[in-house]
Each structure stands twice: as C-alpha cells, then as structure tokens.
Nucleic acid binder design. Structure first.
Lengths: 233, 233
DNA sequence: ATATTGTTTATGTATAAACATAATGTCGAG
DNA sequence: CTCGACATTATGTTTATACATAAACAATAT
C-alpha cells in the first residue's frame, strides 16, 4: 500500500487543461471556483491558484475577481518566437558563422528615425551595413543605426571579432523595444548582397531597442531567400 | 506617519529588473540567493521567489537548483506575437470585415500534408480558398485544408456567416500547432487575389493545428502588400 | 428611475513553516 | 588519482492562514 501522492500544481493544471481540451468545460463557460477545485483535487487553494494562473498566463483561461474563471473564447492567440543571436542560430545548424562589416560611417539618420531619437538638432550617428554568412553563403543583410549619443563607446568599437549585434548585446543594457515582421521584394542591392534574383520575396525584421527613454539601436534584418521563422505552441 | 507598506512581489521584481537594467548585476553574474533578498527587502522568501520566477519566465534570469540565480547572458530572446482573429484585427482598425469563400471542394491533399495527416490510404479532405477583406479591400488570401476525417462536421459547414477560421475556433478544440513566417514574391494568382503586382513581396504565415495526435487544419495565409506584424517587449 | 452606498464573493497576495529535489562539492575507499 | 557515496545548499513546492481588492449585486436614498 503506497501512501497518498501529494497533488502538485502541474497535476491540477494538466487536469484542467484536459477538461478544456475535451470540451468538458466549453469556451466562455465559467469553471468551478478555486475553493471547490481545491476540495475536489484534495489540495490547498494556493495550489489550484498556481495552476490556474499559469493557464491564464497562457491565454487558456480568463480570470476576474469576483466574476470567477472562465474558459477563453479563442484559446490560442499567441505565438512566441525566440529571436536567437544570429551566430547561435547558424552554429546550431552546424554551419560556420561569419560576418563582414561592409559600410561604417557617421551619418545623419532619416527623419523618422530622428523623431524616435528624440534629440534636438540633426546630429550624425553611427551607421553600419553588415552581411552575415553561414558556410560562406549570404544569410542575412543588416542595416543598423547605433545611437552614439546614448552609447558613445560604440563609435570606437571595432566589430572585428564581435558582430555589431553581439557587441551591443554584450556591452549595452536595454529594457524595451519593438519588432516588426514584413516582406519585401528584393531590390538590386539586396539581391546582390544576398545572392538572389531581383524581386525575390524576402522576410524582413525591423527592430528598435531602447534603454529607458533612450533609443539604443534601430536595425533592419533582411533574411536570405527561403528563410523561415518557425515556432510551435 | 504612515504605517509600513507591505512589500509586494511586483516591487521586488521592479527592483531586481532595475538592477539588471542598470548593470548593477551584470549578465552572467550570480545574484544573491532568495533568502538574502528576502531579508534585504523585508519580505518572505516566497515573495522573492514569485518575483524571480517571473523574471526567469521572461528570460531575464536563469535559475538552477543549488547553482543559484544568474542574470541571463542574452537578455531578450523572445518576441510574443498575438495572432488575433482576422475579424478582430480588422474591426479593431475601424474597418469593415468581410470574407468570400472562393473555392470549396473535397480534394486529395498533397503528399507532405498526407504525411502529417497520418492516415493510410489517400483520402480526399476539405479544401477551401477564402479571401478576407477590410473595407472591401483585399486583406488576406487563405488556403486551407480541413481534416474532415477528424472533424466530419466541417464537411457540412456553410461558412456563410462564420468564416472558416472562426468556425473552427468556435467548433473544434485544439491543443497544439506550429507557425511559420516566410516571404514570397506574389504569383499571378496571388497578385490577382490581393490586388497587387506580380512579384510584390508578401508575408506568409503557415499554420497547422492539432488536437492530440490528429491534425485538424493546415492553413496558409498570404497577407496583403505592406502588411506588418508588430510586437513590443 | 437613477445615483449612491454597502455587502458579498472570488481572485490576488503575503507569510511562515515544512519538506522535496537537483546539483554541487567533499570525503573516503580503492 | 579516480570513482562513488554522501552531505550541503539553493531553488521548488505545498500547506494553512490571513488579509487585500475588484467587481457583481442588492439595498437605499434622492
């Protein structure tokens, strides 16, 4: 005779997830409250709370004080993409990572970027063009602005052994930013850089990172032809 | 004289986040353990635990039993995209949502899809082509396979008032799937459907959803020219 | 009717205490 | 010196208890 197993919050979560998945509890429907579930599963309310909070974070449940907990109407609405360092992404595929800084100069940023910099007066900042390669094949073409007013040390950085990307990740802190995925047809320059035909559909990721109020860097990544960004839920 | 405020886990989390952001605790560095932090902040260890767990979930900290907690080497590596219902996305912009099922037939799925269906013998399943519009402008062209062997009711569904997307979300449960973003150059068909020129760069989202072992639906969304998928962290 | 006020209730949070678990480090046997 | 057993330690989890808070609901006053 084995002594009674302790109920874990994972067990509760699995049970609840299953009931939702099997439509025993239907979308929009209210589920029993924590105290009842705690009694049913034979555990403390805190354990149920932990389980349900996780499911709410995942978007499977909607919870409101006093109103109770109900199954979300449209369950899965999020996809989380891991944005790895380019080096890691390439090396994870067993390929040899490489990069080349093709252009590097102080340049006056375009108006829309000047607005985001929130500096008065037009001042030149660091502008970089870098090509990343996997086994010497073009992988990614990067166009980057670095706010040298917020990160003066960048002006002197070599980017010889460390790519601009990795240099920034290592050297400067940031706490926010935004990402935008879009698609373009390859221009002549992009086609030349990435070794594809003009007009190929290419995936583009625009990213701006901030630290507090300061914009640190704004970068546009143009991926090679056929690049796929994948995730599962 | 106000009585001492209770320390909340959010306050602890903010403090810790700030210390990381200000590089008081540097990437890779080990931070004080829970008991010490609890003493410092004047709260229970459980409160610190709650705070740190959140930061670990967010990818800012790495925690291992006995080894302690350390600041993650590359802080932000995830971007979470909310994938709203197309209707909601369009209506949120104040535009009028519409859709038209252009094609609907039982068809033999292509080999790579047959493999994912994991059914023996080639059997036709439901194939749909749908155009979604915002203010009557083409918004999204959808090509969808629905596994009518797992969801027989789909064969009879009208998709008159409810789009295939919404019908599925409402009618059938799913618990997993995968997403792939990529880019294409518009083919003649896509250009015609979406009202753009042949060769325009278009964003594509391929999605397959499962319920247990069954594949439910596999869909390719081709967005209109200039579509941007945005998120912030 | 309508606005206000109060009561009730379900979730949210804080705490101390205890035990579980994984990983590290240490010590001793061989 | 190497390997395995074992103690140590930091995080992980569960519990009971208490109080906080938001929101629904009812009762009341205007």
């Amino acid at each position: 005779m084995s002594r009674a197993e302790r109920i874990t919050w994972q067990a509760v979560q699995d049970q609840v997830r299953q009931r939702i998945s099997q439509r025993q509890w239907k979308p929009g429907q209210q589920i029993p409250h924590e105290a009842d579930l705690a009694r049913e599963f034979g555990c403390a309310r805190a354990t149920v709370n932990r389980a349900l909070r996780g499911l709410a974070d995942a978007g499977l449940l909607e919870r409101r004080r006093k109103a109770g907990t109900r199954v979300a109407l449209n369950p899965v609405r999020r996809a989380e993409f891991s944005i790895p360092l380019i080096r890691e992404e390439i090396e994870a595929k067993g390929q040899r990572f490489g990069f080349r800084v093709l252009r590097r100069e102080m340049r006056l940023p375009p108006p829309e970027l000047q607005a985001r910099l929130q500096i008065d007066g037009a001042q030149p900042i660091l502008y970089l063009q870098t090509l990343y390669t996997a086994d010497s094949q073009p992988y990614l073409f990067e166009t980057r602005w670095i706010n040298t007013l917020a990160v003066p040390s960048a002006a002197a950085a070599e980017f010889a052994t460390l790519s601009p990307n990795e240099w920034l990740v290592r050297e400067v802190a940031f706490d926010g930013g935004d990402f935008t995925f879009s698609a373009i047809a390859a221009t002549a320059q992009e086609a030349r850089m990435l070794g594809c035909k003009i007009g190929e559909g290419l995936l583009v990721l625009d990213r701006t990172t901030r630290h507090g109020a300061d914009m640190i860097t704004s970068v546009r990544l143009v991926f090679h032809r056929g690049y796929r960004m994948h995730t599962r839920i």
